[in-house]
Computed example of a mutant assay.
Amino acid sequence: MLTNPQNTDPAANLRSDAGLASALRVSLARLTRRLRKQAVGHILTPTQLAALAAVERHTTMTPGELAEHEKVQPPSMTRVVSHLEERGLLARSPHPTDRRQVTLSVTPAGAALLKEERRRKEAWLAQRLGELTPEEKAILRRAAPILEKLSQM
């Protein structure tokens, strides 16, 4: 019988930082894929959704600020912004102090799309959480701020 010596004791693998990193990477990637499947039914890519949500969180941003925030090259963000603007989800306005710039803001249609997107994903996740034990939910409540901290590093 073939065995995988690296995977003989999953709990032991979680004791090292490398093992924990690997387990978190796999689990978070799976969870992200499952959440993406709950999409509203629109034709936006994850990058386009992330950009739209970033502008909503910051109220207004320049395309350059958005590219920097999302860690993509400005030409790539230009295409994302154009796509979102064509669909009526983002609006461009003159920059208040720099005539060479524009600011981006989320339109009511964009805000509605994001609201529905979040509602669907949170409903799916709430249903999954309902299947967990009280102890498992308590662990996740303690872990949530730590995961947020990791996402900001």
Rank of each mutant, 00 (worst) to 15 (best):
P134M: 03
R142Q: 14
Q127I: 06
A143H: 04
L129G: 00
R120M: 06
A126P: 01
I146V: 15
E135Q: 14
K149F: 12
T133F: 05
A123S: 10
E122K: 15
R142T: 12
L150C: 07
A138V: 01
A126I: 11
I146L: 12
R128Q: 10
W124S: 00
A144C: 01
E122P: 00
W124I: 04
E122W: 12
L129Q: 05
K121Q: 03
L150G: 09
K149Y: 08
A138Y: 08
R141W: 09
L129F: 15
A138G: 13
E148T: 15
E148M: 13
K149D: 04
R118V: 01
I139R: 14
R128P: 07
L132M: 07
A143I: 07
L140F: 11
A126F: 09
P145E: 03
L132Q: 01
K137W: 07
A138T: 15
R128F: 06
P134V: 03
Q127S: 11
R142A: 14
L150R: 04
P145D: 00
K137H: 00
R142C: 05
L125H: 04
A123E: 12
R128L: 08
K137F: 00
L132E: 02
E136L: 12
R119M: 03
R118P: 01
R119A: 12
L129A: 07
R128V: 12
R141H: 05
E122L: 08
E148P: 02
P145I: 08
L125C: 10
K121A: 08
A126R: 12
E148I: 09
R142M: 09
P145W: 12
R141V: 04
R128M: 11
A123Y: 12
G130I: 07
W124E: 00
T133D: 04
G130M: 07
R141Q: 06
L147Q: 14
R128C: 08
I139H: 06
L132N: 03
Q127K: 14
I146D: 10
P134N: 07
I146H: 04
